[in-house]
Design a protein around this nucleic acid. Structure first.
Lengths: 230, 230
DNA sequence: GGATGTGAACGACTTCACAGCG
DNA sequence: CGCTGTGAAGTCGTTCACATCC
């Protein structure tokens, strides 16, 4: 089922970055940006690893995919490493994002500083509720789902954020796909079926809470062995 | 074979469920609840697997940890499987949850039906902003962080939802730990350090969007074959 | 000395294949 | 026959250990 790798360099023979690494790269990036603000010119794999609880070897393996920019005895040059990670993740440019389903979660995402900081710009709002269509929010006018193809073409949105109730999720996702979106970040507690050329990341909030309940339960039943990160 | 075959029921240490399985169990659960609503008395591993894109063998392996409740030639009894999964995940009871940081995201979580449906009850609200303290929201009064120990003891909250800005995250997390919380679901884009007896699950929304950008980018560079779930 | 890059060992998770039961 | 349960094989990801370079 799930595939999807391949390096972006011209030479196709680098060690491709695994799905697991990609998640960590985002975290390294945050960490590096923090180091950069403090003025560190270089950072070592040990420093990065300590902060988010992975081994130094793991960090080096993850970073190896970016080309050899570490300097033995010194570490990695902070600024260049940031640039390399952004390039590898595909966030060395801006992404225009459409948001569908204007509820509380949408409002939270709209104002989430982290998105804009990383180059994600919400350029369009949609809702199925006719009462909401036409309202303005943070400088954007809410459109109906029927206007999706036109608005998405006009704004150049490539990614979609889905914050609608479960029942509407598949239908709205289909509309996004039809309108030419290339990837969907889904917050609805539903398993979506999408054509293979559209990428999907799902975040199910109830699932996360259930994971937490499980961890708490087992750490209580038995003398809990491991802490837990991420 | 002849003797010594002690029952696998009573002993708590069955083939332990792997971290990876736990995430899928939540998804099976959703799927099963949907089947149950439609009136299916039994479900096969193939049916479950198809819906969320894993193999039937994988489903059986995951379900094996719950004891042998599958019937060859038939499948799994829906209702019993639901009960078994809820028991394994530790959601066969209610969990009292405290929410810290009453912004838009908190409002969204407060009204998220999925939580209540799975037995998670938000019983306390906290905020550092003195202007918010004392306000009421959905029948709850917002308390200050200084009241945390008293309120958490009084309400019996065991889990904490952290929806504060990055800067405040570690400090508030420490306060939750000091107040006796047993697990934290963190939405702040920060890496938290917690004592090992407190469980942690982190959801970083920007990281999720970055993952999506990566997937879209690689699927665009090359003829990206498969979609991606989870 | 300090830190990187990497093959090799290790462990975790997934798929395969098939015995066995309803 | 259909479907479960499970050892065996295979794949993927992490950790170790060490040669290498500044």
């Amino acid at each position: 089922m799930s595939r999807g790798d391949l390096s972006r360099e011209a030479n196709g023979l680098e060690p491709r970055l695994s799905r697991a690494s990609v998640g960590r790269l985002s975290l390294y990036l945050r960490c590096l940006e923090s180091y950069a603000r403090e003025g560190s010119a270089t950072v070592s794999s040990g420093q990065l690893g300590d902060v988010l609880g992975v081994t130094d070897a793991q960090v080096r393996k993850d970073l190896a995919c970016l080309g050899n920019l570490g300097q033995p005895g010194i570490g990695y040059p902070t600024a260049e490493l940031i640039a390399a990670i952004r390039g590898a993740l595909g966030i060395d440019r801006d992404w225009a994002v459409a948001l569908v389903g204007v509820g509380n979660l949408a409002r939270a995402l709209l104002r989430y500083r982290g998105f804009a900081q990383q180059g994600f710009r919400i350029v369009a709002l949609f809702d199925v509720d006719p009462a909401k269509v036409g309202q303005r929010l943070d400088g954007l006018t809410i459109s109906g789902v029927d206007q999706m193809p036109a608005v998405i073409a006009a704004t150049g949105a490539e990614l979609g954020l889905l914050t609608v109730p479960m029942e509407a999720a598949q239908q709205v996702a289909d509309a996004l796909v039809a309108a030419g979106i290339r990837g969907i970040l889904n917050f609805a507690p539903a398993v979506l079926r999408l054509p293979s050329h559209v990428s999907l990341v799902s975040v199910d909030l109830a699932v996360q809470l259930e994971q937490l309940a499980f961890l708490v339960q087992v750490s209580g039943n038995y003398s809990g062995p491991e802490p837990t990160t991420r």
